[in-house]
Simulated assay, not measured.
Amino acid sequence: MSKQKLTPVSNRHVSFWGRNNTWFLLIGSLITLASCNSTDSKLPILGQREAVTKTVDGKSVTDSVYQSVPDFKFVSQYGDTVTAKTLDNKIYVADFFFTTCPTICPKMKVQLKRVYEKFKGNPDVMLLSHTIDPAHDSVSVLKEFAQNLGVTGRQWLFVTGDREKIYDIGQNSYMVTAQADSTAPGGVVHSGAFILVDKAKHIRGIYDGTTETGVDKLMTDMNRLLAEYKP
């Protein structure tokens, strides 16, 4: 897949996905369709899937392999390396933001703080916030930002790294908007989505992270997802 050249975040403004209603409706349709096809109360697995045929006990068996978040390497607010392995055996919520964003990011962080407080101390849950402005959002800036939010410990990590890799994982793995747009303030559009990921790195839900209703739904679905792993 060809990658789009992205414009740097120059004046640190952002546009929400109001201009991306078609995308949002498409995701909503996919979630509804997957839910309708579900035979139990489990959350659907979103994204592409591939039919794989293998031999089991001498018989040919076709199974579905679902899209998953690939390995990555970023740096946290503590200056250490964060990879996909850091989140092994966890469900987690991912989002994209930047610390100087004056529009949707403050709303998102208020809502994600609710999630943090609700699941604080739960060893099966993590939060992962990716900055889309790594040129400004250094390790020290992210650490101060986390501290100002009242975030301690390693349950909620704020990560920075190579800008192109951050945009790539947003668009191609988490299925959220992160692209150049010359009509948007700062030349960049990113979504206000929160993405729920299971322990197998499959995407299980995408939610509006700017509203209380959207995040209430996220927290309900997090409990549903955690229940899947109970004996």
Rank of each mutant, 00 (worst) to 15 (best):
Q4N: 15
L6G: 05
L6N: 13
V9T: 12
S10Y: 12
S10K: 11
N11R: 07
R12D: 08
H13K: 12
V14G: 12
G18E: 09
N21C: 06
N21H: 05
T22G: 12
I27C: 09
I31K: 14
T32E: 10
T32G: 09
L33Y: 11
N37Y: 04
D40H: 03
K42H: 12
L46Y: 10
L46R: 08
G47Y: 09
G47W: 05
R49G: 10
A51T: 15
K54G: 08
G58C: 09
K59S: 11
K59P: 04
D63T: 12
Y66D: 10
Y66A: 13
Q67L: 04
D71P: 02
D71H: 07
F72Y: 02
F72P: 00
G79T: 05
A84K: 13
L87T: 07
L87I: 05
K90Q: 09
K90L: 02
Y92H: 10
Y92P: 03
F96H: 01
F97D: 01
C101V: 00
C105A: 00
M108W: 00
V110Q: 09
E117F: 05
K118I: 04
N122W: 07
S129L: 12
D133Y: 02
A135D: 14
D137P: 08
S138Y: 06
K143G: 14
E144A: 14
E144N: 15
Q147R: 12
Q147M: 06
T152G: 13
G153W: 03
R154K: 11
W156K: 00
L157W: 00
L157E: 00
L157P: 00
V159G: 01
D162K: 09
D162M: 07
E164W: 00
Y167A: 15
D168K: 01
I169P: 01
G170A: 03
Q171A: 11
V176T: 02
T177A: 04
A178S: 12
A178M: 12
Q179V: 06
A180H: 01
S182L: 06
T183C: 00
G186A: 06
G187D: 13
G187P: 06
V188F: 09
S191C: 06
G192E: 15
A193V: 04
F194N: 14
H202A: 06
R204E: 03
G205A: 10
I206V: 14
T211I: 01
V215N: 01
V215Y: 02
M219Q: 10
M219E: 14
M219Y: 03
T220D: 15
T220F: 08
N223A: 10
R224L: 09
L225M: 03
L226Q: 01
E228G: 00
Y229M: 07
